[in-house]
Amino acid sequence: MTVDVGICSTDHVNAEVYAALLSELPDANLVGISGESRERVRKQANSVGAAAMSHQELMDAADGVVICSTNAAHKALVDLALRNDVAFLCEKPLATSLATAREIRDRCAESDVVAGMAMPIRYSRPMRRLKEQYEAGAVGELIAVSGVNRGRMPGGWFVDPEQAGGGAVADHTDHIVDIVRWITGEEIEEVYAETTTRFYDIPVEDVNLLSMTLSNGASFIMDGSWSTPQKNSFWGDADVELVGTEETLAADCFGYRYDHVSDTGHGRHTESIYWGADPNNALLRDFVAAIRGESTLAAAATVDDAVRTAAVIEAAYESVERGEPVDVDR
């Protein structure tokens, strides 16, 4: 059985990535792309052979959608999907506040619609291997965790605090916090944040440094800054290191890369190209399988997981305001 899927909103930079991958999946039929910007929606739809639609038209036509809107619009679009019994993956963060994230979670709990987060890192093979080794006791007792998820400053609505819920903290905290929770089974207990705006003239923070503790007492430092230069050869990174009493293990989601140096007369340019298995593709395959009833989407980050990271993000912003470590409201 082929399932009908769609991209709900083109506001997020990943909409194009997901559309291209869904259009190639054998068990999925990319029926449409919806959004507010008719021109952009038509352009993206044309590029993958799908139809441009309104959000309601897409919900009528699709069995499942990937919600790629601004963060502020997630709640309305999740509501729309739930009302139409349409399965969804939602871009992170789930909401612009912890309270709204909890409302979305509670609304989802009343439905049996397939729901998850569009967060592919749990499908990264290095991260899955790291989790296997951790669970096998390879590091011994966990002492400390270190993670990075830097990237280029995305601009647009990502730097509008109303639409995004903040800056680099809102944008680049979910992935690493979620993957550490998933690998270790521990929760974040306390957050101290150092943020500032140093790289760009924007109204939100572009430096996102978090010092945390896990429920087992391990320390956890994370750099989620928008510090990757715009001309960097790769978009950013997603690495985790676990320091234990027995061993130190590290995983680099995008470590499998080669360099391409272009020297064509238009100036020299070096691009670093990822050649490993694509975690986005694995996530979307699992989503399609879940719609077909062949998967429980158990590997994906759930809406409840997204509420946990929303609590960390909220604690981080509170820490900045208070200038001290803050307990996470779990």
Partner: peptide
């Protein structure tokens, strides 16, 4: 701001 943990083979500190 800094945190430190000790144990087994490794000790670790991070400072901001």
């Amino acid at each position: 701001f800094a945190r430190a943990r000790s144990g087994g083979r490794y000790d670790h500190v991070h400072a901001m």
